Simulated assay, not measured.
Amino acid sequence: MLRVKKLFGGTLSLRDYNAQISKIYAMVKTLNKLTELSMPKIQKIMQPTITGV
């Protein structure tokens, strides 16, 4: 939660509880997207099979 607060600000300025929850969901979704962008893409390399040996 500390990283979310550091990146997006430490307080919620909205008074409505549902609006606060929506804002938190948006923050977490953005943070997950940023984390996904920093992850390396891994592809499985298939080894060729030898047939007729």
Rank of each mutant, 00 (worst) to 15 (best):
M1D: 07
L2A: 13
L2G: 04
V4T: 08
K5I: 01
K5S: 07
K6W: 06
K6L: 09
K6Q: 13
K6P: 00
K6A: 15
L7Y: 03
L7V: 12
L7K: 15
L7A: 08
F8T: 00
F8H: 09
F8L: 02
G9E: 04
G9L: 03
G9Y: 04
G9Q: 03
G9F: 04
G9I: 01
G9A: 01
G10L: 00
G10R: 05
G10N: 10
T11R: 08
L12M: 11
L12N: 12
L12I: 11
L12C: 11
S13P: 02
S13G: 11
S13C: 02
L14N: 07
L14G: 01
L14A: 14
L14S: 13
R15K: 15
R15D: 13
R15S: 14
R15N: 13
R15P: 08
D16E: 11
D16Q: 10
D16T: 07
D16A: 09
D16S: 07
Y17F: 13
Y17S: 08
Y17K: 10
N18H: 14
N18G: 06
N18F: 07
A19G: 04
Q20E: 11
I21N: 05
I21G: 00
I21T: 08
I21E: 09
I21A: 10
I21Y: 07
S22A: 14
S22W: 00
S22N: 14
S22C: 04
S22Q: 13
S22R: 13
K23E: 14
K23D: 13
K23H: 11
Y25M: 15
Y25G: 03
A26N: 10
M27S: 04
M27K: 03
M27C: 12
M27V: 06
M27F: 10
M27N: 15
V28T: 08
V28S: 05
V28G: 02
K29R: 13
K29Q: 10
T30N: 11
T30L: 14
T30F: 06
T30C: 07
L31K: 01
L31V: 02
L31G: 00
N32V: 05
L34S: 05
L34H: 04
L34M: 14
L34I: 06
T35I: 10
T35R: 10
T35S: 08
E36T: 06
E36D: 14
E36N: 09
E36F: 02
L37V: 03
L37T: 04
L37K: 12
S38W: 00
S38Y: 00
S38M: 10
S38C: 05
S38R: 11
S38G: 02
M39T: 06
M39H: 11
M39Q: 15
P40G: 05
P40I: 02
P40R: 05
K41A: 12
I42F: 14
I42P: 01
Q43F: 09
Q43Y: 08
K44Y: 13
K44M: 06
K44T: 12
K44F: 14
I45H: 05
I45V: 15
I45S: 03
I45W: 02
M46R: 10
M46G: 00
M46A: 10
Q47V: 05
Q47I: 05
Q47H: 07
Q47C: 03
P48I: 03
T49Q: 11
T49D: 09
T49E: 13
T49R: 12
G52K: 13
V53S: 08
V53A: 06
